[in-house]
């Protein structure tokens, strides 16, 4: 797209930025990403790796920093990186620019992981994310621009973390930051008013990507979604959950989580039986798999015991 003003700021590796208000120094290490609202860099500050977001539009910096501050009050580490600093600094071209500094979230991008994870693992991650979304919704905020590109699988914490908070919107207001394919307005399946169902719709689209990347027509025909869903193979166990979320049938994130959990439980229960038959027919199942399997059967039995 051509536009008159680009919010991105290009900085060479090694560039140093000095904060004018809080006097901290940041050294650019690497570009992490560029978007419609600015650029994010990996930077070093007193020997530590952190992420710095800078934009030609100072209101982007202020608005996102505001949101990060609010999310910190939720004390949920999945909902966004923690905010470290907000400041202005002079760039090598002598322009003054606003920026904020946040925790550097390391991990694998969900865009590639979503097709590789087992359905059980994917379901568990989504279930966890739904709890955290519910927490956000309870604070009267909607994530807005929920999509795989904004999700990182944090290896050390074993959970999904959301990294771009530009779309976070107060409940009842209009959503301004969204990505067509994840936006229910685009598919004419609802409006852009910020409400829990808006996020749940986007999460359903994320789940659909576990089948294969969703390609779409420029005018967002609903039938494309339904056809994709009904012809899906890998994500069949989640078909009903996805359908309900697309239609806005889940009142809140916890209702959707309950159904996701049920699917996960069902998958775990049915897995040993399926794999036992495979074992007989082909001998490729390793000993390690068997140990995991028997562990899972035991765990399952244990869970059933607890539940009963």
């Amino acid at each position: 797209m051509m536009s008159s003003i680009h919010p991105t700021v290009r900085l060479a590796n090694g560039t140093k930025i000095n904060g004018l208000w809080h006097k901290r120094q940041y050294q650019i290490k690497q570009l992490l990403g560029e978007g419609a609202r600015g650029s994010t860099y990996l930077v070093e500050a007193s020997g530590k790796k952190v992420a710095l977001k800078i934009s030609r539009d100072p209101s982007v910096v202020t608005a996102e920093a505001n949101i990060l501050k609010k999310l910190q009050r939720a004390q949920s580490i999945s909902l966004g990186p923690s905010l470290i600093d907000v400041d202005d600094g002079y760039l090598p071209n002598r322009m003054k620019q606003s920026f904020y500094v946040m925790e550097y979230v390391q991990g694998k991008p969900m865009t590639t992981l979503v097709g590789k994870l087992s359905l059980v693992d994917l379901g568990r991650l989504m279930s966890r994310l739904l709890s955290e979304l519910h927490q956000l919704h309870s604070m009267s905020y909607i994530f807005g621009d929920l999509k795989l590109d904004n999700m990182i699988f944090d290896d050390s914490l074993k959970r999904i973390r959301l990294v771009d908070v530009g779309g976070v919107t107060q409940v009842g207001r209009g959503i301004r930051e969204y990505t067509s394919i994840y936006d229910r307005g685009f598919w004419r399946l609802g409006g852009r008013k910020a409400e829990p169902t808006y996020d749940l719709f986007a999460l359903a689209i994320c789940l659909m990507h576990a089948e294969r990347p969703l390609k779409f027509d420029s005018n967002g025909q609903q039938q494309i979604l339904w056809r994709f869903l009904s012809s899906s193979k890998r994500i069949t166990p989640f078909q009903q959950v996805i359908k309900q979320a697309l239609l806005g049938k889940y009142r809140d994130a916890l209702h959707m989580k309950r159904d996701v959990d049920q699917v996960v439980q069902h998958l775990i229960r049915s897995r040993p039986v399926q794999q036992r038959t495979t074992k007989v027919n082909n001998r490729r199942i390793s000993e390690r798999d068997l140990i995991t399997l028997s562990g899972m059967v035991a765990f399952n039995g244990f869970m059933i015991y607890i539940l009963l």
Partner: peptide, 14 residues
């Protein structure tokens, strides 16, 4: 707006 310290700017933004 930009002449204000970042904290105050946050309030103006809201």
């Amino acid at each position: 707006e930009e002449a204000l310290p970042p904290e105050t700017r946050g309030e103006v933004q809201e």
